[in-house]
Simulated assay, not measured.
Amino acid sequence: MIRPKWTPVAWLADRMAVLVLGLIAGFLVGLSFAGDGRILPAATTVASTDGPAPSPVPPAPPVAAQGVDGPIPPQVTARMRRGGVLRVGVFGDSFGNGIWDALYRQLPTSDGYEVLKFAKEATGFTRYRTLDLEKRAYEQLARDPVDAVVISFGANDAQAVYDDGHLYPLMGDGWKRVIGQRVDRFVAAARSTGAVVYWVGLPVIRDPQLDADMQAMDGFYEAHMRRLGVPFVDSRPLTLGADGKYTAYLPDSKTGRPVLMRTGDGLHMIGIGYQRLTSGVAADLRRYAARVRQAAGRPAPTPTGEPR
């Protein structure tokens, strides 16, 4: 198959279309909320064969795994002792907004949780000229420290990244270097309050080329999370149909009957779809909350047994 040749104008128009659809879907997802994936442990020039080679960056040393079964940081115990709740912060783009709503419903206040939304649509690691995610995260967590962080980025990052006067193509060596450094620093910011961290990967996308880009980025993110000791939630198995392809209808967790879980843009999900992606994270955080309450000498609240 011969693919059409992309001009810079056509490429920008295509990515702008994805962004517009993402913004629209973000609003629709907010109104929509009413199988088994894996949580894995853990003057501008174009950089090309004609451009400057990216500077070699030695790999960062592995970070000790930090998860729900590891030591409880003293600041987390102290916050539980004072407030009696496990505070969960959700970072991301429009997907992050959906992840926040899902966890907000799965971890209700009446059960001893506070789920905070730090996500912002139309953001990403390729867009630091618009918003520096690392700086914003430190500012947010200084105001509202949390005990657990859930991250979901990537919907807006299937594009080149501008850095230090150069435009590095998607998934090229320069792109991986720049985005990898930003991801590493962002995770460090997320951990600055003693929080355990999860990264939720991207679901299957309807458009084949965009899905291939997203899958490649997810592999990159997963490798970074493994090195950083961050559990990675592989969303693809949860969003594939029985034929192994994209489908808007997926089995309901209780009845097994197919129900609509995707929005019409072929990118985002509706409320029940996001809850499908976060059920494993929610279960882990309930277990962690029980350990933290025990360490803080706090009695467990009487659970409602039902999500919001």
Rank of each mutant, 00 (worst) to 15 (best):
G51W: 08
R81I: 04
D50N: 09
G70N: 00
V68Y: 01
P74E: 14
R79G: 10
P58T: 06
V57L: 15
Q66L: 04
G84F: 07
A53T: 14
A53D: 11
Q66M: 11
Q66S: 14
T77V: 15
M80D: 08
D50T: 12
T49D: 14
G83W: 07
R82G: 05
D69K: 05
T49A: 14
A53I: 08
G51A: 11
R82L: 10
G84L: 06
P71W: 02
R79M: 10
G67W: 00
V57C: 07
P58N: 04
V76E: 04
M80V: 10
P61V: 09
V68D: 00
V68R: 08
V63E: 14
P74G: 03
R81A: 15
R79A: 14
A65N: 04
M80P: 09
V76Q: 04
P74K: 01
V76A: 12
R79D: 07
D69F: 02
G83C: 05
G83A: 10
T77M: 09
P62W: 03
T77D: 02
A60D: 07
V63S: 12
G67S: 13
R82F: 00
S55R: 14
D69N: 13
A53M: 10
P59R: 01
R82A: 13
V85F: 13
G70Y: 01
M80G: 09
P71V: 02
A64T: 12
R79Y: 07
Q75S: 15
V68E: 07
P52Y: 07
V85Q: 11
A78V: 01
P71D: 14
P74S: 05
T77H: 04
A65P: 11
S55L: 15
T49M: 08
V68T: 15
G83P: 04
D50W: 11
V76L: 05
P62S: 12
T49N: 11
A64S: 13
M80I: 08
G84T: 05
G51Q: 10
V85H: 11
V85A: 10
P58E: 14
Q66K: 12
Q75W: 00
P74H: 03
P52F: 11
A64N: 04
P62A: 13
V68A: 12
G70H: 00
V76K: 01
V68C: 02
A64Q: 10
P52C: 08
A60I: 00
P73T: 00
G83E: 12
D50Q: 11
P74L: 03
A65E: 13
A78D: 14
P62M: 09
G70Q: 03
G84N: 06
G84Y: 07
D50V: 08
R81C: 08
A64W: 00
A53V: 13
A64V: 10
G83D: 12
V57H: 05
T49G: 14
P73N: 01
P56M: 02
S55Y: 04
Q75K: 02
A78R: 12
G83F: 10
A78W: 01
R79N: 11
G67D: 15
P74N: 07
A65Y: 10
R82P: 01
V68W: 08
Q66T: 03
T77A: 15
A60C: 01
A60Y: 03
P54K: 09
G70M: 02
T77P: 06
P62F: 01
P71K: 02
R81L: 12
A78G: 07
A65C: 05
